[in-house]
Every structure is written in structure tokens, then in C-alpha cells.
């Protein structure tokens, strides 16, 4: 890392600048092969979701999907500061913040939020803002903070140098165009699911719980290399909740991430990146979106269970149903 100006508020590294460790591999064939998952393409990974672990905030949740670990806390609704510059807000002001921990990815991230974190934050905002009944909380703000502790990415491959015929070559193996979108998509879907669990835990009134879903379409590697367009669309493989490594011999086409309200059958956030074409009148986009919705529906099941578990816990503890959580349970039963 090049020496920029030191951060006044934090402890800084040595002025010489440090670099992440670079690994040496004698031949590229010895490189780590991407792990093939035994999971069928229409099955999502197991989700661990628990709410109410942080006692000092209004609502919180912790989510774990294989390597992805994130913690969400909801602060508020609390009154807006009373300053002359604060405009009147008839509806609650929602702010969302997504931050990767410095140790959450292969390349160490700084403490200042980078563009991808801001992007995730604004997408999470879009997914949640429509689901919250903001008109019930005038002149107040609700803050959703997501901290990502661990995520799935390229691993040490990005920092590996291969030596071939005595000459070092930097190769980025298994790198493909849709890779970062896939990685971010899985993170965003997790953020959406966990954040709505935390909002429900905070007792904030919502129209419905939003669950996140992600799906990627793949084609055979041979087809993707400039053959006829007819071949391109022939045998497509849709994978729900895709892992970072593509399935063997496949090339990714497009990734779709969405926030989905199952009880109302509404999409609150849609993000498609990659190539989507048209096949026999039916758009492939529809198929991709349907796959993502199916993934979101599976995640919704986990979300329901977590919310139910939490309400049960509160009822057991206090002996009465909490007044603020009633709304969320009601919605849940219809979904």
C-alpha cells in the first residue's frame, strides 16, 4: 500500500508502506483448483440467522452463509437532531451503511468506506425503504448498519505468482468478468435478508419482510466463444446462490440480485449485470429473475423462522406478546 497521508484518528502502519503477501507457485498447474460444490443448482446454501444478540441497540441480527458472516444493527427510530438546518421530515429518514471489516476479504480493506461499500449501502437502502412504513415515524431516523466480518472471494489466488520456464508471470486464474458481481450479489442478498430480520427485531412496522435472492445464468464455455447466437442460448444453467467458482466448464452470463417481499409478491430492488438476451419471445431476463425469486423465497423461510423464534423468546420471557412486534408476526403468517 502506498504511503498516503496518515490517518489522524487511527494508528498507522509504518511509513514504508506494506504489501500483502505474494505467494510463489512453481507451475500454474499446481494452482489451487476451485472447489466444486456438491450442491444442486436450485438449492441455496444453509443460512444461519439469529436476531437480538446485541442488547444495547434496538434491533440486531447475525447471519452466516458458509463463509459469509455479517452482523446488522438497527438504531432508532430516534428523533432527528433539533437544529435549524434539519428539514422537516414527514416520514422517517432511513440510512443504510455497509462496511467490510479490514480482514473480511483477501485484500485488506481500509477503514474509510470505498465505492463498492457505498454502492452496496445504496442498494440495501433501495431494497428496504419501500418495505418500511415510514409514515408512522415522522421526524425520526432509522439507521441500519451492516458489518461484514467474512466474505467469499478469490482467496490467495490473486496474490500468486507462477514461475514458468524460469520467468515469473502473474496470472489471475479463474478470474472471469462476472466474478465480482457474483461475490457482491451474494453479500447484498445476505445484507437484505439480515437487515429485514434486524428491522423486525427492532419492532419497526413494515409492510412485509424483504428477503434477498441471487441467481446466475451459466453457459458452456465452448458456446460462449463466438459461435452462433442460436447456440448461445441452448443449454443454460441457472444456479441459485452461486459460489464464487463457476461450475466446471461453464461461463457465467448474467447475475441477478433482488430484494423480494414474498407476501405481497413485490420486488423492491433489482440488480442485473451481465448479458441477458431474448429467446423465442420469452425473455431470458424473466427466467433469471424467477430463479432469483425462488432463491429469495427459500431465504424467506429462514427469515420467518428467525422472526418466529425471537417473538417466541420474548413472549416466553415477558409472558405477554410485545405490542410492537405484533405487526411483524401478523405479516409473517400471510407470507
Amino acid at each position: 500500500m502506498a504511503a498516503k497521508a496518515p490517518d489522524r484518528r487511527r494508528n498507522n502502519p509504518p511509513s514504508h508502506g506494506t504489501t500483502p503477501p505474494v505467494f510463489l507457485s512453481s507451475s500454474s498447474s499446481g494452482a489451487v483448483k476451485p472447489k466444486q460444490s456438491s450442491r444442486p443448482p436450485d438449492e441455496i446454501r444453509k443460512i444461519f440467522l439469529r436476531t437480538g444478540l446485541i442488547s444495547s441497540v434496538t434491533g440486531s441480527s447475525f447471519l452466516e452463509i458458509a463463509p459469509l458472516k455479517l452482523s446488522v444493527s438497527v438504531l432508532g427510530p430516534r428523533p432527528l437532531p433539533r437544529t435549524s438546518s434539519t428539514p422537516f421530515a414527514a416520514q422517517a429518514i432511513l440510512t443504510t451503511e455497509v462496511k467490510f471489516a479490514p480482514f473480511a476479504s483477501t485484500v485488506r480493506r481500509g477503514y474509510i468506506r470505498d465505492s463498492s461499500e457505498r454502492d452496496l449501502g445504496s442498494r440495501l437502502y433501495q431494497a428496504l425503504v419501500g418495505a418500511i412504513r415510514r409514515e408512522l415515524y415522522p421526524k425520526s431516523r432509522i439507521e441500519v448498519v451492516v458489518t461484514i466480518l467474512d466474505s467469499e472471494d478469490e482467496g490467495d489466488d490473486v496474490n500468486t505468482v507462477y514461475i514458468e520456464e524460469g520467468k515469473a508471470t502473474v496470472e489471475t486464474k479463474f478470474w472471469d468478468a462476472g466474478r465480482s458481481e457474483r461475490a457482491l450479489g451474494v453479500v447484498l442478498a445476505g445484507c437484505i435478508t439480515a437487515a429485514s430480520a434486524a428491522l423486525a427485531d427492532a419492532g419497526i412496522e413494515m409492510f412485509d419482510l424483504v428477503s434477498g435472492g441471487v441467481a446466475t445464468s451459466f453457459v458452456d464455455e465452448a458456446n460462449s466463444k463466438g459461435k452462433g447466437k442460436g447456440h448461445l442460448v441452448s443449454n443454460k444453467l441457472y444456479v441459485r446462490d452461486p459460489a464464487i467458482a463457476p461450475p466446471g466448464g461453464k461461463t457465467p452470463l448474467a447475475t441477478c440480485v433482488l430484494g423480494y417481499m414474498a407476501a405481497r409478491d413485490e420486488i423492491s430492488e433489482l440488480w442485473i449485470s451481465g448479458k441477458v438476451g431474448t429467446k423465442n419471445g420469452t425473455t431470458e431476463m424473466d427466467e433469471l429473475v424467477d430463479e432469483a425469486i425462488a432463491a429469495a423465497r427459500s431465504a424467506r423461510g429462514v427469515l420467518n423462522e428467525a422472526a418466529k423464534e425471537r417473538v417466541q423468546f420474548i413472549v416466553d420471557k415477558t409472558g405477554t406478546a410485545p405490542p410492537s412486534k405484533g405487526e411483524t408476526t401478523d405479516v409473517e403468517m400471510s407470507g
Binding site: R10, N11, N12, P13, I54, S56, V57, T58, S60, S71, V72, S73, V74, L75, R78, K99, A101, P102, Y111, E143, V145, T147
Partner: peptide, 13 residues
Amino acid sequence: VPNVELSTGCSKK
């Protein structure tokens, strides 16, 4: 280089 991060929504305060 130790650093502590508290602005993770760990507390209302």
C-alpha cells in the same frame, strides 16, 4: 498496528 472500530452500530451511544 492495532485499531479499534466502534462505529459498527455496537451501541446507541
